[in-house]
Simulated assay, not measured.
Amino acid sequence: MNDLPVLVSFDAGVATLTLNRPETGNTINMDMAQALLQAAIRCDTDGAIRCVVLTGSGRLFCAGGDLSSFADAGTNVAAFLSQLAGTLHMAVSRLMRMRKPLVVLANGPAAGAGLSLALAGDIVLAAPNAHFTAAYGAVGLSPDGGMSWLLPRLVGMRKAQQMIISNRRVGADEAAEIGLVSHVVSAEELTSEGMKQASLLASGATGAIGAARALLLDSYGDSFEGHLDREARSISALGTTDESREGIAAFLEKRRPDFIGMQRAQTDKA
């Protein structure tokens, strides 16, 4: 079995990142954090990648930080945690800020930073056996990976307080009800349904999707009028792109837009 901490594969414009420490529940150590950052940078900068899928190997999606590595750091634990969290945060930021969609397949339980990674997806599909736990308070720590920013925005402050402060576990069905995940999908169909969703997104107007991702993310820090200006500037800029011209032409000609073929033609010209 491949012993790389993050497996990366590519198919038809979709990059799949698989957390690959199944013997530890895909817990995050420094090697995994660095590998995830490298993969996220590639996904962000490679124009041939049009959608990214993030999942885990084995029974768990991700059980959070590797506590044994915390203990091994001894008296240097503060510096170690700063470096580990900082590396993970650069990876999360890349995945959140890249101009292409992210699909998360929660193939099993997610805890700690694993929950944070699940929250980062635009579409999050969960297997029925998945459950979600903040877990930090149980080991005397506070959240990282963006959890304390993302969770209340997805599920509301009261439910976020229950999960983070009270360490309440949320099952897959409840996670879908409260908006923590998009859908619950059978374990047998999770990968196929996830790749179906990713293929649909990869065939779409990724430039427009990327701009929408940025607007949604920036909306939390904007005034309403300031965000109206961002929207106006964004739609104006997109109106001059080949994607927009192809999309409008396809609509008027009553055909499906071919954004992938358009990108391929641009690459051939270059």
Rank of each mutant, 00 (worst) to 15 (best):
K100N: 04
P101K: 07
P101V: 07
P101S: 08
P101L: 10
L102A: 12
L102T: 10
V104P: 04
L105P: 02
L105D: 04
L105K: 02
A106N: 09
A106W: 13
N107V: 12
N107D: 06
N107A: 07
N107E: 09
N107R: 14
N107G: 14
G108N: 10
G108V: 06
G108D: 08
P109S: 09
A111I: 03
A111N: 01
A111P: 04
G112E: 04
G112L: 06
G112P: 05
A113P: 03
A113M: 11
L115C: 14
L115Y: 08
S116I: 11
S116W: 02
L117D: 10
L117R: 13
L117F: 10
L117P: 11
A118Q: 10
L119G: 10
L119I: 05
A120E: 13
A120I: 15
G121F: 12
D122E: 12
D122G: 15
I123N: 06
V124T: 06
V124H: 06
V124Y: 05
L125K: 00
L125C: 01
L125F: 01
L125I: 01
A126T: 03
A127C: 04
P128V: 05
P128T: 02
P128F: 08
P128Y: 07
N129A: 03
A130S: 10
A130R: 00
A130N: 00
H131Q: 00
H131N: 02
H131I: 00
